[in-house]
Design a protein around this nucleic acid. Structure first.
Lengths: 322, 322
DNA sequence: GAATCGACGGTAAACGTTGACCGATAAAAC
DNA sequence: GTTTTATCGGTCAACGTTTACCGTCGATTC
């Protein structure tokens, strides 16, 4: 009887205890499929991401799982590459997965086609650090522009004026946001960005290395490099070392993400901490609140988390300011 | 009608086509809970692991997901810390999760209590690199002893005789296996392990750093350090640098895992590649075969994958041999 | 042209749980 | 002692599929 296990009323204590004992003795576990069928819930939450750095993925997962712990919900991981070129495929995958809700990390969270699909099917979703259509769905955001501004301002305040930039994957809106932040900081400092010192990477070490080599091969070498994530920043350090330059004496390098490599690299990277874990927790939290019908309509649909600049040993004033 | 969508016989082409069109028009998706109920299957595969390095987790996941792609099965991640001290809790978690099968990574795969529980409930499972009870369940293994032997033999062949060792978490049987491999290699080379140069870490950077500092503080400093994973090896390099030693001139360092940091570190780490992704793929493959009833009883229950020594720039002959 | 056979479409039971409903029993009030 | 009420335990429909079964219709064969 479901009433006994469910602690429902209209059941005597004696019967309840007996039923529970029997259930324990038989290692009885209620059939989740039947419960799902009647509750019209699968108790599954999806998490989609696209081949970013391992530490980012793990932070995302741990954040979401931290909230799901002690809940009935389980987390299904659904990595998917090249969303930008085939958003409908991901949509189908998500809709077929029988989820109660889905957490969308970049760049999936910025695909209008995808959002249209899952909205049509009324699949609840939360977006983690989206960069477009910020009024759609539940949004957990970090101000990428402000973060970009902070790290660029740090470099400028050290006295650097010839600054190289390694952009991330252009399909990630984060790349544009961070660049916009750089621009504003440069404007504030009355410095102009030298477009010839802006290279495009894709967030990977290998491409970052190549782009860094090109930047350092210029007749007037930059004295600092702003990389849009840590992997590319570490690559820039390696490239500098291979050219006989030492960091931070000959070249300052700043990264982005506060990933594991930023701490284990030498010198440790100056970087920007993104509270990925906290944001994933928050996204899961808000999604669950929606699913469980806690209609706190006073809760804002968007929530901003703060970034943090971590100044470590990879940045210093330029050797000779002249 | 299920027959039309299911491509079953006894359905005319016209009707089948009409049904499929209607289904597509309505964005119809069959209810997975109802299907699960009747099929007595949830089409969920669990993956349990315990707080190892991010790259290891991601490799595990990608391997398993690679096999699950284009299958009905979905992957549920179930990290669980401190299994050794509370295996029954993980057992309950797994049994309540409504899984069709579960992939057990270390150290969960070496908990007899856990295996007992899930066997009693007839939950199929595959174990990835277990170290005890190798005859229980489906086993995907790598010979840790042989791998330890290989890397230790490499260090000895370079001429090192005073070798420091940083062990991993003692609760991981891998730590013991690798150490046993070291021992055999030392024995082969007629070298004795200096127990005062053996420190115990826990696979993390921070503890690895502390242990490395202690080892390098000895009156007779080791000329090489064998770390049982890459994070601790990178920590050892950092510790050496902080003491004014350069790697590999003053100290050789070898790691384990071929993780991302081993490639991005400076100098790049000599390490042992564990085919984690392949093993996870294989484990998922064998688990699915079992679930789908492909009773290839001729398939061995255990399968060994090969390790590979990657010699990079962090190891070299000792500066002065004597 | 009638009978048999095969193919097709419809109907209904089953999966394991929940929750509403109903009858019965015991307790309380008159 | 009888009526009312509250509480408990049991029964049954429902969730959305799948699959077995059955009836019917058309086609083929004698």
């Amino acid at each position: 009887m479901s009433r006994a296990l469910n602690d429902a009323p209209h059941v005597s204590e004696a019967v309840r205890r007996k039923v529970k004992e029997a259930a324990a003795a038989l290692d009885y576990h209620p059939n989740l499929a039947a419960q799902s069928l009647i509750a019209r819930r699968s108790y599954l939450i999806g998490l989609t991401y696209e081949r970013p750095s391992p530490s980012y993925v793990v932070e995302l997962q741990n954040g979401a799982l931290g909230r799901l712990e002690n809940e009935r919900y389980r987390l299904v991981v659904l990595p998917f590459n090249h969303v930008a070129s085939r958003p409908e495929e991901l949509g189908k995958l998500l809709l077929r997965a029988g989820l109660d809700g889905v957490l969308l990390a970049p760049p999936a969270c910025d695909q209008p086609v995808l959002l249209d699909m899952i909205e049509r099917q009324r699949l609840p979703y939360a977006r983690i650090t989206p960069h477009s259509d910020l009024d759609r769905g539940l949004v957990v955001a970090m101000d990428e522009v402000a973060a970009g501004h902070t790290v660029a301002a740090h470099i400028l305040s050290l006295g650097h004026r010839r600054v190289g930039i390694i952009l991330g994957d252009p399909s990630h809106a984060a790349s544009r946001g961070r660049l916009e932040g750089y621009r504003q900081a440069f404007q504030d400092g009355a410095v102009t960005i030298d477009d010839s010192l802006v290279g495009t990477g894709d967030f990977t070490y290998d491409v970052g290395y190549r782009v860094a080599l090109e930047l350092l091969d210029r007749p007037v070498r930059p004295t600092a490099i702003l990389a849009q994530n840590d992997d590319m920043a570490v690559a820039a350090i390696a490239a500098a070392r291979d050219l006989g330059l030492s960091v931070p004496q000959d070249l300052s390098v700043a990264g982005f993400d506060n990933s594991e490599v930023s701490r284990t690299a030498w010198p440790p990277l100056t970087t920007v901490h993104q509270p990925v874990r906290e944001m994933a927790w928050d996204a899961a939290n808000r999604l669950i609140a929606m699913l469980d019908g806690d209609t706190d309509s006073d809760a804002p649909r968007r929530r901003d988390h703060l970034h943090e600049l971590l100044v470590r040993a990879s940045t210093a004033p330029p050797a000779s300011t002249g």
